[in-house]
Nucleic acid binder design. Structure first.
Lengths: 357, 357
DNA sequence: TTGTAAGCGTTATCAT
DNA sequence: ATGATAACGCTTACAA
């Protein structure tokens, strides 16, 4: 039944079945016709020996393919998946790669790790980078030197690397213009993290100059096209909780009451942040949009927010992932990958209105 | 600089550096002392040839290890990661496996896919199953036949497979008892999915008998220890939105107003479901806990719910993941894996109180 | 339809 | 400290 000695190989199976290894191999790959009788003999022998099919490691060496696509996430895993945008992108990616890969290998882009990035030691056929920081460049180089396809989602990584991008700046400018058109002059901006270390607080020109997260910088640039002097506060991530923290700083005084010099509109760089802002506003007795206009960015469905029609920018998150997957698949097939740029669309919701003061 | 012909191998590097392949290999693995001079010569040659280090595919064949641990998730990826419990488990897993693996390979347990589960074709060193359904058994068998370590988190998969489990039943009974002690006699239960196809609706004895999701069944059994006849409604997943849907069915009449025969307490099988229930209750003008007691299960921090102190059961989710990772690491090291059972703890919050009628 | 044979790129072992 | 050699387990032309 079971050989105790050592795991059976395809050669053992072939021998037991009285066929050549190539025939046995072909029985499992199914790539060539095999006489039904032989097929059954081989399968029987395999069952006898407890052979569970070709060893993927050996197969991948021989084929030059492992069937694995690596995904490098900038943030910590837990943080990353809390973001519905990330999850949506992953969904698109999975979908587009369903035929071309066995699965996605989650790779951390650990800034603490000084040496070889894990991505250089993983048997992957291609790599997708999401929201990568400047440091990620190293990893990309390591992968490219290996000749593997690389696609970057929303991150700038040099020439020759296909990127999936969004018109973050233009879209941000568009929503800012909407707010300006409503008549708001006194606004505050709440941004995504600017640096890899996710510092919370006022965004000074110095900080902005040293910022490493492109998405944040681009969206901020768009907002500042319309509101060049609006104060901005950075958060530690795209979370409702973070929106709440930032909103408290922007809207409330030390006692937790609305400040008199508070802005009449808050432009947040993500919907989750906007939801946090709204929550704080309502807790403080401010009505949205009557007393305060709040707008976001993303336009992704958030669990539990069904009814809340945020005024926001809709981004094609699943499509972004799908596009990345498609480019990977193309490159795996030998074609050159190309960059894909997506446009966002403004969506008027119920959280923006003219100022009451 | 770069050879156009074909990717350089370690043999090419060795030749260029005038050393043997074994020496070159050792330079990269760093497992044996090499004279500094040789080392540099090899590295220089590697740079010259654009050699990016040993091919992980070949290395994994030779070593018999790929460094990859597969994670099989029952639900669709997106669904799975929306659940903070899953993310917490993943975090623990990542943490515990940081030294033993390059990364986690996300594998879908696709019930539609009739043939070979992806997990059988992936070059993984071990597999962790999370919240697996009955069908998953197949996959487990395939992996075990291959001789790979398998650990199951919250799912029953036969003898010999180390499992990470929770005292779901006892904990559920405990929280039900809390509600009963408060004096509630008219309660409704809102459950997690019972079957792989995630059907919403009343839980009949027939459905329950055919249920395939152990966690749901166990928690329900615990609740029914205290409330044997309480009506139960199943949801399509652990989501706020799902809690809202179920709560509407349980609490409201066709016009959206609270029914007069509504229960005085609702016991939900997850915190997210409970949050959804609370939201519907409040929308309908019912105060929690004055008019309605709501309890959950999980005790995990949910983004945006900071203040909400749910009466719930706290489960050690990160620890579950960590324990799974530790067992995998042990088994990878040749030791036998063992099952780990965790106890949950009751946490009194502000959402439960004696009934007002 | 089946068999032969040549690798795929490494690394571990054992000498030297 | 370095080198020769033999696997690791499989796939795929190509031949029969």
């Amino acid at each position: 039944m079971t050989s105790s000695r050592r795991r059976a190989t395809i050669a053992d199976v072939a021998r037991a079945a009285g066929v050549s290894t190539s025939t046995a191999s072909v029985v499992f790959s199914g790539k060539v016709n095999v006489a039904e009788a032989t097929r059954e003999r081989v399968l029987a022998a395999a069952g006898e020996l407890g052979y569970a099919g070709p060893d993927p490691r050996a197969a991948s060496l021989r084929r030059g393919r492992s069937g694995i696509v690596g995904v490098v996430l900038s943030a910590e895993l837990r943080h990353a998946f809390l973001d519905p945008v990330t999850t949506a992108v992953m969904e698109g990616l999975t979908e587009a790669l369903a035929d071309a890969s066995v699965g996605l290998l989650l790779l951390r882009d650990d800034p603490r790790e000084p040496q070889a990035p894990a991505v250089a030691e993983a048997p992957v056929d291609a790599v997708v980078l999401m929201g990568c920081s400047a440091r990620t460049r190293e990893a990309v180089d390591a992968v490219r030197r290996r000749g593997l396809p690389v696609v970057v989602i929303e991150g700038d990584v040099g020439e020759g690397v296909p990127g999936i991008t969004l018109d973050n700046r233009a879209a941000s400018a568009a929503i800012a213009r909407h707010v300006a058109d409503l008549g708001h002059t006194d606004v505050a901006l709440i941004t995504l993290p600017l640096e890899a270390d996710r510092i919370r607080g006022a965004v000074s020109p110095e900080r902005l100059a040293a910022a490493t997260v492109d998405v944040t910088v681009d969206r901020l640039a768009g907002l500042r096209e319309v509101y060049p002097d609006a104060p901005a506060v950075s958060t530690a991530g795209s979370l409702i909780d973070e929106g709440m923290i930032a909103a408290r700083a922007v809207l409330l005084d030390a006692g937790g009451a609305p400040r008199h010099d508070r802005p009449t509109a808050i432009l947040a760089q993500s919907d989750l942040l906007a939801v946090g802002v709204i929550r704080i506003a309502e807790q403080a007795g401010l009505r949205v949009p009557d007393d305060l206009t709040v707008v976001g960015f993303d336009g992704i469905a958030v669990d539990g927010l069904g009814a809340q029609r945020l005024t926001t920018i809709e981004q094609p998150a699943v499509e972004k992932g799908r596009a990345a997957g498609e480019q990977v698949a193309r490159m795996l097939a030998g074609d050159p990958g190309e960059s894909v740029h997506f446009a966002c669309t403004f969506r008027a919701g119920g959280t923006s209105a003219p100022p009451s003061r």
